[in-house]
């Protein structure tokens, strides 16, 4: 067994990601869960950065850890979900469906991994260094994927208007 430095770093990050992700579902307290989710986002961002996708890495932190999780925490605190109440029945419809979906995903992933075989990176040497830059991502976003991009921004606008309508007593 001989690892290169980047493989060792990747393994470390991967373990940290999986560990904090499992903490998200293992934690009793919703705030602890949320903080573990923040840690997961950071380790994921580090993995993106290791794959030279700097833009995605930084956006992961800015959008998920910085904005969405802060709002999550705010909502959890406002609702004060500290008291979870007595545990319900062990087998519910949600748990069966969720378990089945998780098992299906697991089988699909195992099948995909069994079929996978390592093949050398194709393309010109050095071209990989460019694909994660702001120019590359922005270029793709504003040329080839312009329509989906604008559609998503319209969706967000609708959601914003919806939030205002819900929050205001009289529109």
């Amino acid at each position: 067994m001989n690892f290169s430095v980047s493989e060792a770093v990747f393994l470390l990050l991967a373990f940290a990601t999986v560990f904090s992700a499992s903490l998200v579902i293992a934690a009793r307290n919703p705030i602890n869960s949320a903080m573990a989710l923040v840690a997961t986002f950071f380790f994921l961002a580090a993995i993106y950065a290791q794959l030279l996708a700097h833009t995605i890495a930084v956006l992961q932190i800015l959008v998920y850890a910085g904005a969405i999780m802060v709002l999550f925490l705010f909502v959890i605190m406002l609702l004060s979900l500290t008291d979870l109440g007595a545990p319900g029945p062990r087998v519910t419809f949600h748990r069966v469906v969720g378990g089945a979906a998780a098992f299906g995903l697991f089988v699909a992933l195992v099948l995909a991994l069994l079929r996978w075989h390592a093949n050398p990176v194709t393309g010109r040497p050095g071209s990989g260094l460019r694909f994660g830059t702001l120019e590359a991502v922005g270029g793709l976003l504003y040329t080839r994927w312009l329509l989906p991009f604008e559609a998503v921004s319209l969706l967000l606008l609708v959601a914003m208007v919806g939030a205002v309508v819900v929050a205001k007593p009289r529109v």
Partner: peptide
Amino acid sequence: LDVGVLYVLAIGAVTVLPVFT
């Protein structure tokens, strides 16, 4: 970094998390 400004803003935005925690 080529995303320098974005990085600065991202880490700056996260600073509220320890305060809140």
